[in-house]
């Protein structure tokens, strides 16, 4: 990472996009406190992560396609364990709500390891919503979900941002999805933010037909042999 600086405001959904290896997951790992930046700081709900790690992380949560929950616990057991970790009050009722919201009631006694990848993603999202985080981090949350379920998931996350006023940082390779749900987009390459703005504004400003076209042109430019971060 080099000079990366941004904020996610309450109720805002920010898309973090870029080619593979651009540093999207690295940024998310830094915000989650599992990778220490060599310089700079991370603040969650105004709390400095380096100084008050536990307090800061209590205001966040995440779901990542590449980080499944333990497969040897059932859906309900996983939600209970992580609900205890996040100190969720009224945990049993919260679990029931999330099981209903994410269509997981019939899987509550099923071990996560035997669920389909799409079902596992829904469990991860339910876990991520347990503590109504002030900052929700989503690393390709719809990567393994069918289009109908993905649309449903997107609607729930948009509702979460609007209703609970949580900020959302969302990485995705699906530019149509990013254009649909994100209020702001950060284009990342080689560990730097190259472009930042509202999806429609970025498309207009750079004369692209779609966000995907803009992504491809930026990616080609930065990944070309003589192309470096501008």
């Amino acid at each position: 990472m080099d000079g990366v600086s941004f904020e996610v405001r309450p109720g805002e959904i920010v898309g973090l996009v870029g080619p593979n290896g651009a540093g999207k997951t690295t940024i998310i790992n830094m915000i989650l406190g599992v990778l220490e930046p060599t310089a700079g700081y991370v603040r969650i709900a105004g709390i400095d992560l380096a100084r008050s790690r536990s307090q800061a992380l209590a205001h966040t949560n995440f779901a990542a396609a590449h980080v499944p929950l333990p497969g040897n616990l059932t859906v309900e057991q996983n939600l209970r364990v992580f609900g205890l970790i996040y100190g969720v009050t009224g945990l049993s009722a919260r679990i029931e709500t999330l099981l209903a919201d994410y269509d997981l009631q019939r899987h509550r006694q099923t071990k996560c390891g035997v669920l389909s990848s799409g079902e596992q993603t829904r469990v991860s999202l339910a876990k991520a919503m347990l503590n109504r985080p002030r900052l929700l981090l989503l690393d390709e949350p719809t990567a393994s979900i069918d289009p109908a379920s993905a649309r449903d998931i997107r609607a729930r996350i948009v509702a979460f941002a609007a209703g609970d006023q949580g900020g959302v940082l969302w990485t995705s390779h699906n530019m149509y999805e990013v254009a649909e749900v994100c209020h702001r987009v950060l284009f990342l390459a080689h560990g730097k933010i190259l472009l930042e703005g509202e999806p429609d504004s970025l498309i207009r400003t750079h004369g692209a037909a779609t966000l995907e076209d803009l992504f491809v042109s930026v990616a080609h430019e930065t990944l070309a042999p003589d192309g470096g971060p501008k």
Binding site: V34, S54, F62, A64, P68, L69, F82, I85
Partner: peptide
């Protein structure tokens, strides 16, 4: 064994 470190250590758990 269950590759649970990220889930655990990205939480308020000390």
């Amino acid at each position: 064994w269950s590759r649970n470190f990220l889930n655990l250590f990205a939480t308020p758990l000390t």
